[in-house]
Design a protein around this nucleic acid. Structure first.
Lengths: 113, 113
DNA sequence: AAATTATTTAGCTATTTAGCTAAAAAGACT
DNA sequence: AGTCTTTTTAGCTAAATAGCTAAATAATTT
């Protein structure tokens, strides 16, 4: 279960327009499933999400995007996997699922008060 | 439906330890259901959540708590209702529910990719 | 009308954040 | 070895944030 500190970190990470958009892009970009574990490791599609690919969708300098990605990774809502000199990025479904359950529980529990 | 700007605002509001704790306190404090609309207006319990009551749970000055509450209200995740010279505070269940559904949808949709 | 209670506003300071450019690091390719 | 690609680190600045105290506002009570 996510502790409070982890939750606050996630909210802080998503509480910035640029990072929110990056996160959304990673989640819904279509090319996001670059290296998921159910596939053989060398099955990486051409447009797989790496830092540069993501940065192309934004009007900020590459290091800025790199820093934002670091923050999303520190909050554990994305994963970054190095393969050769690129870094492949995916959403961390498990954590997002946990967060989702937190909210569901919060709302459900409140109905009992 | 919550638009992006609203979501970012909510995340920013919850992405601070103090505000997160305040929010949690409002949600789970037990005295939170002070003036819900299903009850007659004068049925306000003695310990109903008002700014001072909340502030008592924290080691920060009252104006600091007041500002944090304003931010939670601006993010629309709590309501603040003035009655005589006190302000009664409650979670905004509708918005929290919407947020909850967002996450559920995000996770569910991703499974289809 | 004066005092008390509850809350916000104003104005300050220290810290953090978000952006930038330039340079460094780590691999891969020729 | 040298070059190209990908990403991070360093170091800077402007703006935002989170805390404080003192003062203002608004309503109630005496």
């Amino acid at each position: 279960m996510l502790n409070m500190e982890q939750k606050v970190k996630i909210f802080k990470a998503l509480g910035n327009e640029t990072r929110f958009k990056i996160f959304k892009n990673i989640f819904t970009g279509g090319y996001a499933c670059s290296i998921d574990n159910t596939k053989p490791k060398d099955d990486i599609i051409a447009q797989a999400t790496c830092v540069t690919t993501i940065a192309e969708h934004f009007d900020f300098a590459l290091p800025t995007i790199s820093r934002h990605l670091k923050e999303l990774r520190d909050a554990d809502i994305i994963t970054m996997t190095k393969k050769s000199n690129k870094i492949y990025i995916e959403p961390n479904l498990d954590i997002v699922k946990e967060l989702s359950e937190c909210f569901t529980k919060l709302v459900d529990d409140y109905k009992l008060i």
